[in-house]
Each structure stands twice: as structure tokens, then as C-alpha cells.
């Protein structure tokens, strides 16, 4: 599924990385705990999270996780957008709850990594 299709399904606003909308992705992981995000080994899934601060971006940078969906109406700060842009990430904001956003993506065929 393309990033553009994911954004449409989630009615999400892409705040950075618009040039990557045609990329295809198959896997996602959802957590508010960055400690968990750092345990994904070789996997590089799309990240859904309600944690909205600079460490969200930093953690994803360390884990080579470059597509981040902020759920629960969280809005990225300017500093977050700036850091995400520097790292070439896709960052989007979604008003849905984590449960709803995950459910929609799972139903549409996005796979869990475990």
C-alpha cells in the first residue's frame, strides 16, 4: 500500500515527506513506548504512536524507522518537523485513536511484524 493510500485511509495530514507518497509499505508497529520501538531488530515498519515529542523522532531515527503516524490528534512541533525533514522522514498527523488507526490499516492489509 502506498503512503498516500495510508494517509487517505486514516484521513491523516502529511506534515513532512510529501515527496515519498508513492512508496509502498506493508508492515506497521504501534506503541507509545519508545523502549519497545527500539527492540524491533531488522524490521523497519511504519510506526503509529501517540507519543509526540522530539524523542519520538530521535528514536525512529536510531531504529531506521522513517514513516511516523501520530495518532490521537497529536500535532508535531516545529522542532519535530524540522528534525524529521532533516532525516528525510514521512511524518503524519491522524485524529483517530490508536485502536481505530491500527484497525483500519490492518483491515486494509497492512501486516503486523509479530
Amino acid at each position: 500500500m502506498t503512503i498516500k493510500e495510508i494517509a487517505t485511509l486514516l484521513d491523516a495530514k502529511v506534515v513532512c515527506g510529501k515527496e515519498r507518497l508513492d512508496e509502498e509499505h506493508e508492515n506497521a508497529f504501534a506503541s507509545d513506548l519508545m523502549s519497545d520501538v527500539l527492540t524491533l531488530g531488522d524490521h523497519n515498519p511504519i510506526i503509529l504512536t501517540g507519543l509526540c515529542n522530539l524523542q519520538t523522532i530521535r528514536t525512529c531515527e536510531m531504529g531506521n524507522l522513517d514513516i511516523i503516524i501520530l495518532v490521537r490528534k497529536k500535532k508535531a512541533t516545529e522542532e519535530m518537523i524540522e528534525m524529521a525533514e532533516e532525516e528525510g522522514m514521512v511524518l503524519m498527523e491522524c485524529n483517530y485513536s490508536m485502536f481505530k488507526a491500527c484497525g483500519i490499516l490492518y483491515q486494509a492489509g497492512i501486516q503486523a511484524i509479530y
Binding site: 527492540t39 507519543l51 515529542n53
Partner: peptide, 16 residues
């Protein structure tokens, strides 16, 4: 914990 850490997984994850 508000920053998304403090789950007691740091040192074990370093070891891995």
C-alpha cells in the same frame, strides 16, 4: 516515562 522510556528495557536491549 513521559519521554517514552523507563520500561526497564535499556540495559537488556543494549546486551542484545
Amino acid at each position: 516515562r513521559d519521554m517514552g522510556f523507563g520500561a526497564g528495557m535499556g540495559l537488556p536491549n543494549i546486551q542484545k
